[in-house]
Design a protein around this nucleic acid. Structure first.
Length: 469
RNA sequence: GGCCCCGUCGUCUAGUGGUCCAGGAUAUCUGGUUCUCAUCCAGAAGAUCGCGGGUUCGAAUCCCGCCGGGGUCACCA
C-alpha cells in the first residue's frame, strides 16, 4: 500500500465526541499502516461558532487516545491569503462571481422554493451581470451541472444527477472561506490522499467534484463514515443529545486502548470472530472496505466489557501506575505504602472495570467502615440465625484466627477447619466473617482479603461486629 | 417535497447463490467454580435475514416494487 496522507479536520467548536474521534482513529490507522502521515488541521473559518480552548481540548483528546499527528495543527484562519489566491484563479477563469443578493432576498427565494416543495438551487437565480467582487459580498462558485459517478472507499459506487450540483459560496462576506472551498484547497496543497468524513457530507460530494474539475485538481479517495447513532437507534449521536466529551471517559478511568478497540469495532471488523484488539493489531488489520455502511448504535455496555478485557490483560505494575489518581483518599494514609496498595489492586484487578470504581471496591482495605446491620439482616442465610448463634460463630472464628500466621495458605486451612468444627456451610460462616471484616456488600475472596487486611485489623473488626450484635 | 445512503438476534456484527430452518460477541436468564461481587466454564432464550413480488433446481445473498430509518437541500462544518 502506498503511504497514505490523511487528516483529521475538526472545527474548534467544543469538545470531541465518539463520532469525531472514530473518524480521526480510522484516518490515523490508515496513515500508520501505510507508513504515511496523519495531519491535524483546524477548520476555524466560522468565527461565530468558535469556542475558546477547543483546539487544546481536541489535541488533548487525540493525545490521550495515542493518535499522534505528524503535521499540524494547521489553522485555516492563518491561510486566508492562500484561499484568496485560489479564488482569484476561479474568478479569472469565469468560474466564480459575486453574489448580489441580500440575505433577505435569498431567504425569500428559499421560502418560495420550500412552499412549492422544490429543492432550492441558487443557480436558477444566477445574476445576469454580477457586480465586481470586492470582498464585501459572498463569492460564489459558478458550477457546471452534470451527473456524476464516483467511488467511495466505504460506500462503493455512487451516482447522482446534475440537479444536485449548485453554486455554493466559496468565500463569505467576512473574508473567510467556507468549509466547502477551504478543505479542497487544503487537501490539495497538503497532498491528502484519503478524505474520511461523516455521512453528512455525502450529498455535497458532487459539488466538490465539480470544484475539483474547475480547479484542475485530482480528487482524493473519498471514504464516507456512517454515523454513530444514539441509544434510540435512529438519530445521529450528537452533543445536543448527550454525547459525552471523549475526555470524560478518561476522567472515569477508561483505558485509551479500550476506547480505541471499542471505536474501531463500531462499524468495522476484520471478518474473523475476533473482538478484542490492541492498537497495534488494528494498525495491521484495518481496512476501509470492511467499514460498515450502516450506522451503529453507541452502546456503552460494550465499551464497559472491552474495558474489563483490557484491564485484565494489563500486568499489575502497569495497572498500578494507571490507577494512581483513582484510589480512595484514605489509601494515602501513612501506613499504606505502594506494596500494600499493590496487594489490594491485585485482588480487585479482575473485578475492576473503569477506574472510578476503585474507591468503592477497595475502601474497606484502608478504613474501618461503620457496622451495617443490613448486611446480616438481609442475608438470606444469616438472618435466620440468632444473635447468640452469630456471636458464638464469630468467637470461634476469633480463637481460630488468633493462632494463624495470616498467610493465604494458613488462613485457607484454618477456615476450612472451622467449617468442620462448626458444622456450618461456607455460605453461612464465610459470609459472616466476610461481612464482619469488610462491612462491604462485596469483596474479594475471604482468605485473600483477610491476608491483606492482616491479623490485628481482622480480629479487631470481628470484635466490633460481636459488640454490635 | 427533490436527491442520496442505509435496513441480519435488544446491541455490535459474520455472511457476496447451496456446507445458513443464519455463526460469533455483548447484554439478559440459569447452573457450576467451598461465601459475596467479579472472573472463568457450561447452558438457555433471543433474527419468519424490513415487506411483497420475481430470477434460479436453490436467495440473507441477484433484479423490481413498496415500506421504514437517516442524511442533505446555510455567508455551519
Amino acid at each position: 500500500m502506498k503511504p497514505a496522507r490523511t487528516r483529521f479536520a475538526p472545527s474548534p467548536t467544543g469538545f470531541l465526541h465518539v463520532g469525531g474521534v472514530r473518524t480521526a482513529l480510522f484516518a490515523w490507522l490508515l496513515a500508520r499502516q501505510s507508513g504515511g502521515q496523519f495531519i491535524l488541521r483546524i477548520e476555524d473559518t466560522d468565527k461565530a461558532r468558535e469556542v475558546v480552548g477547543s483546539i487544546e481540548h481536541i489535541q488533548e483528546s487525540l493525545d490521550w487516545l495515542g493518535l499522534a499527528w505528524d503535521e499540524g495543527p494547521t489553522k485555516q484562519s492563518d491561510r486566508l491569503d492562500i484561499y484568496r489566491q485560489w479564488a482569484q484563479k476561479l474568478i479569472d477563469a469565469g468560474r466564480a462571481y459575486a453574489d448580489p443578493y441580500s440575505p433577505e432576498e435569498l431567504q425569500a427565494l428559499r421560502d418560495k422554493a420550500r412552499t412549492e416543495k422544490r429543492p432550492f438551487l441558487f443557480r436558477d437565480h444566477r445574476p445576469e451581470n454580477p457586480p465586481e467582487w470586492d470582498g464585501s459580498r459572498p463569492l460564489r462558485f459558478r458550477s457546471e451541472p452534470k451527473p456524476y459517478k464516483w467511488h467511495d472507499a466505504v460506500m462503493d459506487d455512487l451516482e447522482t444527477g446534475p440537479e444536485v450540483v449548485d453554486d455554493f459560496i466559496l468565500i463569505k462576506s467576512d473574508g473567510y472561506p467556507t468549509y466547502n472551498f477551504a478543505h479542497i484547497v487544503d487537501d490539495s496543497e497538503m497532498g491528502i490522499t484519503h478524505v474520511l468524513r461523516g455521512q453528512e457530507f455525502l450529498a455535497s460530494v458532487p459539488n466538490y467534484l465539480n470544484l475539483y474539475e474547475a480547479l484542475s485538481v485530482p480528487p482524493p479517495i473519498f471514504a464516507t463514515m456512517p454515523h454513530i447513532l444514539g441509544p434510540d437507534g435512529n438519530k445521529k449521536l450528537s452533543k445536543r443529545d448527550g454525547a459525552k466529551d471523549i475526555l470524560d471517559y478518561r476522567q472515569d478511568g477508561y483505558l485509551p486502548e479500550a476506547m480505541v478497540n471499542f471505536l474501531a469495532t463500531l462499524g468495522w471488523n476484520d471478518g474473523s470472530e475476533q473482538e478484542v484488539f490492541d492498537t497495534e493489531e488494528l494498525v495491521k488489520k484495518f481496512s476501509l472496505d470492511r467499514v460498515q455502511k450502516n450506522g451503529a448504535v453507541f452502546d456503552e455496555r460494550r465499551l464497559l466489557w472491552l474495558q474489563g478485557e483490557h484491564v485484565r490483560k494489563l500486568d499489575l505494575a502497569k495497572l498500578y501506575k494507571l490507577v494512581a489518581d483513582f484510589w480512595p483518599k484514605e489509601a494515602f494514609a501513612e501506613k499504606y505504602d505502594d506494596s500494600y496498595r499493590l496487594q489490594v489492586l491485585k485482588l480487585v484487578q479482575e473485578r475492576l472495570k473503569f477506574f472510578a470504581e476503585l474507591p468503592d471496591l477497595t475502601r474497606f482495605f484502608f478504613v474501618d467502615l461503620p457496622i451495617d446491620p443490613e448486611l446480616i439482616s438481609s442475608h438470606k442465610q444469616l438472618k435466620k440465625l440468632s444473635a447468640t448463634e452469630l456471636k458464638s460463630l464469630l468467637e470461634q472464628t476469633k480463637s481460630t484466627l488468633a493462632i494463624s500466621d495470616f498467610s493465604v495458605a494458613d488462613l485457607t486451612e484454618r477456615l476450612n477447619g472451622l467449617l468442620e468444627k462448626t458444622g456450618q456451610k461456607p455460605a453461612v460462616l464465610f459470609s459472616l466473617i466476610r461481612i464482619a471484616t469488610t462491612q462491604a456488600p462485596a469483596s474479594p475472596g475471604l482468605a485473600d482479603t483477610l491476608a491483606v487486611l492482616g491479623k490485628d485489623r481482622s480480629l479487631e473488626r470481628i470484635d466490633r461486629q460481636i459488640d454490635a450484635l
